[in-house]
């Protein structure tokens, strides 16, 4: 009997090999962000993520707009994706359960159009989640004002001072 189960098992596993976005976003939400981060209206002069990646200098103040990608559950950090990328669910025939990870994009190109937004308290990342802050969720369009932290590898972190979530 076990040989038969093994044969079926192998076939089934072949069909069930991991694929794009199979992990639902089931993480429990942590504490929310302080209200002081809320910007009632979107600040003017926002640039898109790709432009910020190209021109922003370490320590400079910038305003960036993009779509929300992966959001951490217990740390106040999320990825901000350039709006030129198409979320997987906006593509016909794509049934991706986690379109906010943009798994249908080429990773290197995607990273060039991504920055990380962080909310810090006295330099330390807050143990909270940005999810739910004034409706912030995956793929929502947001405008963030903050200070740039750029490392030697070119990764860009935007330490947020304020944020507006578009309706």
């Amino acid at each position: 009997m076990f040989d038969k189960i093994a044969a079926c098992a192998c076939l089934t596993v072949l069909f069930l090999a991991p694929s794009c976005g199979e992990q639902p976003d089931s993480k429990p939400a942590g504490k929310s962000l302080p209200e002081s981060y809320w910007l009632a209206s979107a600040p003017s002069g926002a640039v898109d993520v790709k432009a910020a990646r190209g021109s922003a200098k370490d320590g400079s103040e910038i305003i960036v707009t993009g779509r929300v990608g992966d959001i951490l559950a217990n740390r106040a950090q999320f990825k901000l994706i350039d709006k030129s990328f198409t979320p997987c669910n906006a593509r016909p025939e794509d049934k991706c359960a986690t379109p906010w990870d943009y798994c249908c994009e080429e990773p290197t190109a995607l990273n060039a159009g991504t920055i990380v937004v962080e909310f810090r308290d006295k330099g330390a990342l807050r143990k909270a989640t940005a999810k739910g802050f004034h409706g912030l969720d995956h793929l929502k369009s947001v405008v963030v004002r903050g200070k740039v932290v750029k490392d030697e590898a070119g990764n860009l972190i935007l330490v947020a001072a304020g944020m507006h979530v578009e309706a």
Partner: peptide, 15 residues
């Protein structure tokens, strides 16, 4: 474990 997630998100260059 969340701190390791933070590391992975920050180091975009490492994919």
């Amino acid at each position: 474990v969340a701190d390791v997630e933070v590391f992975a998100q920050r180091r975009l260059d490492l994919e």
